[in-house]
């Protein structure tokens, strides 16, 4: 008997993504939706999307959604979760959103161990506004605001979010994954699922940092961007589980 082994998750609407060709935001959206389906929580989930390329995520996730101001998704999610503690709440944020303008919000949400899940998309650049330097831009990486490459004397060092947040007692689950090939896509999905399970079992704040590409602003074809991610980002941003509650191990 022929059986569908791969199909569009129900937690995605049928609206086509607006992302550039080969942008891995799309893969990450799909993984989140697959996890929502597998956990059977679509009817009980509230998502918060950021300002950044994923600002329209409210059109794509087939669940109740908020659009938050730039960087403040964790504060919005806090307001939601404190109001409706039995709902599943997640934020979806880029690196400019989470690791620059919204650093205070994510740190304190983690420190308070707010029981929501954050999907943090690290593409080492500001996508939406035209490829400016992000807090996660690598040393030497060229962007529209570091035309000669990021210079540590002038622009300082990249921020390692997973490492930083895992030092907080309130952070229950912190992992860094990548989506540059099918094996890693599978691993990324497992981490995202755990991050939702940690929330649902009431264990506290959970964050998955997902290394992602921006072919458009990196100025390379999509497959080359995946290779660039693997060769340049992973050495600086090591993959792995940085923190995990004992029960889930």
């Amino acid at each position: 008997m022929m059986k569908k082994v791969f199909t569009r998750p129900k937690a995605l609407t049928d609206k086509p993504f607006h992302y550039c060709p080969g942008c891995t935001h799309g893969i990450i959206h799909r993984l989140v939706a697959e996890v929502i389906d597998e956990l059977g929580v679509a009817d009980n989930t509230v998502g918060v999307c950021p300002v950044g390329c994923s600002v329209f995520a409210y059109n794509y996730f087939n669940v109740d959604m908020f659009q938050a101001s730039h960087g403040r998704a964790p504060a919005v999610a806090t307001g939601i979760k404190r109001s409706l503690p039995d709902r599943v709440v997640f934020t979806y944020q880029g690196d400019g959103d989470l690791a620059s303008i919204g650093t205070a919000e994510i740190i304190h949400a983690a420190a308070r161990s707010e029981k929501f899940t954050t999907i943090f998309v690290n593409n080492a650049v500001y996508g939406m506004t035209g490829g400016q330097m992000a807090p996660t831009t690598l040393l030497g990486q060229k962007t529209t605001t570091t035309p000669k490459g990021r210079d540590k004397e002038q622009a300082g060092f990249p921020v390692k979010v997973a490492e930083m947040l895992s030092t907080l007692d309130g952070a229950a689950y912190v992992a860094r994954v990548s989506v540059h090939n099918p094996t890693h896509v599978n691993k990324a999905k497992k981490a995202i699922k755990k991050a939702f399970e940690v929330q649902i079992s009431g264990q506290g704040f959970a964050l998955v940092e997902v290394l992602s590409t921006c072919p458009t602003n990196w100025g390379m074809p999509p497959n080359e961007a995946l290779k660039w991610l693997e060769e340049n980002m992973i050495p600086y941003y090591p993959l792995g589980i940085y923190k995990e509650p004992a029960e889930v191990k």
Partner: peptide, 26 residues
């Protein structure tokens, strides 16, 4: 009820946005 000391006024008003959008008097 819920009393929460936010990390800043910026966060406080965005927490209000979350709770208000979830239907609460906040």
């Amino acid at each position: 009820g819920v009393f929460l000391q936010a990390e800043s006024e910026v966060s406080a008003i965005n927490m209000v946005y979350g709770a208000a959008g979830a239907g609460m008097r906040v």
